[in-house]
């Protein structure tokens, strides 16, 4: 029986983002990766995560004035940098 693959880093970022941006999360994350990291979303690695989080931090402050929500989102994303698992 084939073992199910663990989610990719990109999918993990979307999962975290969906708690804040719901249906718009995948579009939002892939746009940040394409526009600011100049790479395909599927190629996201743990080394890119810090830079991605910096861009998302700047962007989320435009979307919400609630600092608590913005900080919570960034904290959740930062947790991903500490997790072991798939590096892509």
């Amino acid at each position: 029986m084939a073992t199910p693959q663990s989610p990719t880093l990109y999918e993990q970022v979307i999962t975290v983002t969906s708690d804040y941006l719901g249906p718009a999360s995948e579009r939002f994350v892939s746009r940040q990766i394409r526009n600011h990291l100049n790479k395909d979303p599927a190629d996201l690695t743990r080394k890119d995560l810090a830079q991605l989080i910096r861009w998302i931090k700047a962007t989320i402050s435009v979307l919400t004035e609630d600092a608590e929500i913005a900080n919570s989102y960034i904290a959740d994303l930062t947790e991903l940098t500490k997790l072991k698992g798939r590096t892509t």
Partner: peptide, 10 residues
């Protein structure tokens, strides 16, 4: 009920 607190507010 839609997911995403920022999205819900918007």
């Amino acid at each position: 009920f839609v997911k995403g607190n920022v999205y819900r507010r918007a």
